[in-house]
Each structure stands twice: as C-alpha cells, then as structure tokens.
Design a protein around this nucleic acid. Structure first.
Lengths: 225, 225
DNA sequence: GGCGCCGGGATCGTCGACGATCCGTCGACC
DNA sequence: GGTCGACGGATCGTCGACGATCCCGGCGCC
C-alpha cells in the first residue's frame, strides 16, 4: 500500500484528508519562516497558503494570528500579512529584554537548584566545552539553547519562560549569523561556564550578573555585525 | 431618523447590522472581564457569547484567542475557554518579571530623557504627591499607571513596552486590592519620586535600582495580602 | 503636463453549517 | 455492589461563501 502514503509535510495541492487531525499549520508556516523558505518581508496571502498547505483559509488565518503574536509575522488591517524582518536595532532591543529576564531566571535558579540539577548543568557545560574544542559550531549552538532553556526551567518562572519563549523565536536569524563569527564561541563559552558556576554555587546575585554579562556580550556582538 | 440608531455597546439580542464596522468584540469581552462581569474561572462558551454580543461565533472565537495570549483567558483543546484566575503566586511571578523589565526601561529612560520630559515627569510626581495628600486613591492609581507608561515610552524600548503591556493586563485585579491597603500609597509615593529623581538626574544604574526597589516593594505587599 | 477622481482586481473580515472530540451518564456484566 | 463499556448532549475545530475594504491603474479636468 505504498501508493496510499501521504507526505504530510509536502506543501503540494493535496485535496486534504478531512479525517486527519489537521496537521498543525501554524508549526509548518513557522518552520518555513525560520528555515528561510519564506523570505523576510515576503507577503503571506491567506488564499495562497491555503492552497499550498491544503487547509482552509480559516486555519491559515488562525495560524497567521498566532504567528503574529509570536512576533514572526506582521499584519496590517485589510492589507494582509508578511514575514517580519527583524532589524538589528530590534534584535538589540529584544536581547536587552532577554538580558534582564534571563538574569532574573539565573538568580532564581541559583536559589532553587538541586544537586542533581547542578550536576546536569555542569555536564552541559562540559559538553559545550567539548563542542567548542572540536569546532562543532552547530552542536554548540544546540547546547547553548538547551542550557538557556534548562536554566529557565530550573528557575520555575513560568511567566518569564513564556516571555523568553516568544522573544527567542524572533531573532533566530540573527542568532545564526552570530554563531559563525570567528572566535565568538570561545568568548561565549567562558561566559556560559561562569553562569553555570554561580548557579551551582547558589549565588543568586552573582548568577544574575553573569547572565547579564553574557547577554550584554551578545548585544555587543550583534551591534558589531 | 432617530429610530435607526443602534446601541453598539448594549449586548442584547440585536440582529446585528452587517454594514456596521463590527464593534470590537475583543475589547468588549476584555472590559467585561476586567470589570468583573465575567467572574474568574467562569466558562466562556463561544455560542453563548456569540448570542450575547450579537456577532458570529467566529468573531468571538478570534477574540478569545487574542485574550488568551493577553493572559486573561485560558483555553483547553476541545474543552473551551474560561476566565483565567491569577493566583497570588502567579501575580508575584508576573511582578518579578515586571521588576527587571521596568528596571531596564528606567535605566534607558535615564539615558535618553530630555529636559522637557524630565519636567513632565516631575510634574507627574507632584500630582501624585497631591493625590496622596488629599487621599484620592483612584486618582493616584491612575497617575501611577500613567507614570509607568510614560517611563517606558521615554525609554524607547518597543519590545519591553509590548511585554509589559501584556503583563500588566493580567493582574489588574490584584493591583486594585493593593491600592486599598492603608498606608500603601505613602510607601509607593516615595519610591516613585525616587525613580523620577534618578531618571531626571540621568543616572541609569540608580534609576534601575530605584525601579527594582519599587517593584520589589509591590511584591512584598502582594505576598502580605 | 500634472493632479485628482473613479472603476477593477485583489485581499481581508465575517458569517452560518458541518464534522469531530470530549464529558457525563446509564446500563450491562462480573 | 462495583467496574467497564456504550450512548447522548454539549462544545469546539474546520470549511467554503459572501460582503467590505483597500490598492493600482486609467481617464478626465485644470
């Protein structure tokens, strides 16, 4: 029955199976934007996307709303949606907010971290060190995201987590570019290790300072590009 | 032609004028929640709201989505929406995030504030002082919101502004209760004046500390209730 | 020749109906 | 008597169609 297989991810003109649990169009469009299939400032016409993904216009519409308040899409009344182009200035602003909120999370994490979690963080740090040593930029980037995510998790701040989640999605593009700057991973690594150490030492204020120092360095690097 | 007039605000069973520019249902529901017409945890059934406000279910649906990511409404797949009840613990979390973000804004405002804006802030401070002296709690509360908003505006941080806007909406209820604590306005007033002074003195770090001190005090007051 | 007005096309906002999913309840079986 | 499974009501998610709004181009007028 190979002929019956259906590529749920392929955006062809499939008739759309009414029985299927509606594959998440939001996720698909988001992925397409992050991946670069939809260029910045490209218009996103509801009817087109509707045909392209094989779902109704309502679904596309709702997806575009969701992506709008994730900050990936811009909408103007009666004038449609387009992929949001995040300028460097905006990326800096976003990172500034991230700086203070992640600082808060680092402080809270330092207060609440358990021994098991501390060990986990240290293991992450070692993995990052290894990735940098071996020049695995992509791997390092993943671990980076993982570390930030894990710290927020340990902090137990649901509100901050939601805020950061949204902010982070907006400058995936700039983040990419940043990881490729020569020498950048080394600087970044040291800062990350410092954050880990302060959290494991249950030093809230020092952890906050370390987190802010790190993001501050990210901001400088952003400005330099 | 007085008979043709239509009370756009009255949520009766009017047939709904298709020519009308669709009064913003989102705003109406939001107002109803903030005002207390819809109690916390009350179920918000799309069909009911649809009849109640005289718009189609799709419009109500879209409004509920918007309110959901403003944090005023909770939604569960296939199980409907209800008014979100913000616990004290959540209100504290929200205020903690506000603390660091408003701290950032205060610092940026201190860097960018012009003389005209400084004068405006000082005038606001005086108005607040007068309101407290005369016991105008409501007036003070309004000026309070105005001050915070203005500082963010001066800071020029659009991202931070958006984040704060959303956070602020979520604990309107708790904010109300707080203003009524005896002696609270006096404490709050002093802190506000300190923020204003540091901003006007172009002292970013001091301004950030003052803003954090203020929010920190708000958090303590929240916990005490 | 430049400016303002007006139609055509494209696109969005709104609507009511259909199918799918979930919860509560009743009945049967162990 | 307790537990499991099936039925029914309620509610949500999705769909395609209609009307409204906006931009773009051509035409007339100054």
């Amino acid at each position: 029955m190979p002929a019956h297989e259906q590529t749920a991810t392929s955006p062809d003109g499939a008739p759309g199976d009414p029985g299927a649990p509606a594959p998440d169009v939001t996720a698909e469009i988001r992925a397409a934007i992050v991946r670069g299939d939809f260029a910045p400032n490209q218009r996103l016409v509801e009817a087109d996307l509707s045909r392209q993904f094989g779902v109704s216009r309502s679904s596309v519409r709702s997806a575009l709303f969701e992506l709008t308040n994730e900050g990936l899409v811009e909408r103007v009344q009666h004038r449609g949606a387009r992929v949001r182009a995040v300028t460097v200035a905006e990326a800096v602003e976003i990172s500034e907010v991230r700086m203070v909120v992640e600082g808060l999370c680092a402080a809270k994490a330092a207060e609440r971290v358990t021994d098991a979690e501390a060990a986990e963080l240290r293991a992450l740090g070692e993995a990052m060190r290894a990735a940098v040593a071996e020049g695995h930029v992509l791997r390092y980037s993943e671990l980076n995201a993982e570390l930030h995510r894990r710290i927020v998790e340990i902090s137990g701040q649901a509100t901050a987590a939601a805020v950061l989640e949204r902010l982070r999605g907006q400058n995936v593009r700039h983040r990419f570019r940043l990881a490729l700057v020569p020498g950048r991973p080394n600087v970044s690594l040291v800062e990350h290790l410092a954050i880990i150490e302060e959290i494991c030492a249950h030093a809230p204020e020092a952890a906050e300072r370390a987190a802010r120092r790190h993001l501050s360095s990210v901001i400088e690097a952003l400005k330099a590009v």
